[in-house]
């Protein structure tokens, strides 16, 4: 079993992600205080709901310094999911402007999808969308080309550096589906809600040695 430390800032619905990680073979440690992250080897940063609440939970809980240390200095493998991914950006423009962790040179911006006939598409994007990933991306190992994965979001990462983008999906625009830079990976879609493919991505994360 692979030990995984999951950051719990008390604003998230963690049941599904915990169940899915355990199904994928994780020995889970739920961390409600920064000190519980001390012996982490592998980290999950979830996030659901409003950006302000998620990043506020992380800051007010005192998680930012230790996360910076574990991720940027010790270079532990980490996966951010949904708003967990968005918190890794420099800032978010969701209902105001909020400073993020700044691990990716990226802004979190509202989706502005336009259909082929010029009419706007529905926001949030809700549902299963085929996802194109970069060859050799460790989280996508063993998946077929263009797997359908589950999305529910109104905002996404707009990266300054295209090299950070590991996967995209098409929704009236190129939506950033996944980013990765070294040991830092994240997905906009929900692996814990994406049935077999999602569980495979979590298994890949547990095996990943960046």
């Amino acid at each position: 079993m692979t030990t995984v430390h999951l950051v719990d800032t008390d604003v998230n619905n963690l049941l599904s992600i915990c169940n899915a990680l355990e199904m994928a073979g994780a020995d889970l440690r739920i961390c409600r205080t920064p000190a519980e992250l001390d012996d982490a080897e592998r980290i999950v940063l979830p996030g659901v709901g409003a950006y302000r609440d998620c990043i506020g939970g992380l800051r007010n809980g005192g998680f930012v310094p230790i996360l910076n240390n574990l991720v940027l200095e010790k270079r532990l493998p980490i996966i951010g999911i949904c708003v967990g991914m968005q918190m890794m950006a420099r800032r978010s423009l969701e209902m105001g402007e909020y400073e993020g962790l700044g691990w990716f040179e990226a802004d979190v911006v509202r989706l502005t999808p336009v259909s082929s006939d010029g009419s706007p598409l529905r926001v949030p994007q809700i549902g299963w969308n085929s996802t194109s990933y970069r060859a050799g991306e460790p989280l996508f190992a063993g998946l077929p080309p263009e797997p359908d994965l589950y999305y529910v979001h109104s905002y996404h990462l707009q990266c300054d550096d295209a090299a950070d983008v590991a996967a995209t999906c098409e929704y009236g625009m190129a939506v950033t589906a996944s980013v990765r830079k070294g040991n830092i990976a994240a997905t906009q879609f929900h692996p814990e809600k994406s049935q077999d493919f999602g569980l495979r991505i979590l298994e890949n994360f547990l095996r990943w040695k960046p």
């Binding site: 589950y150 529910v152 814990e192 809600k193 049935q195």
Partner: peptide, 11 residues
Amino acid sequence: IRKAAEEIFMP
């Protein structure tokens, strides 16, 4: 829902 969520990995 709690029981369903233990084994069901979809929304």
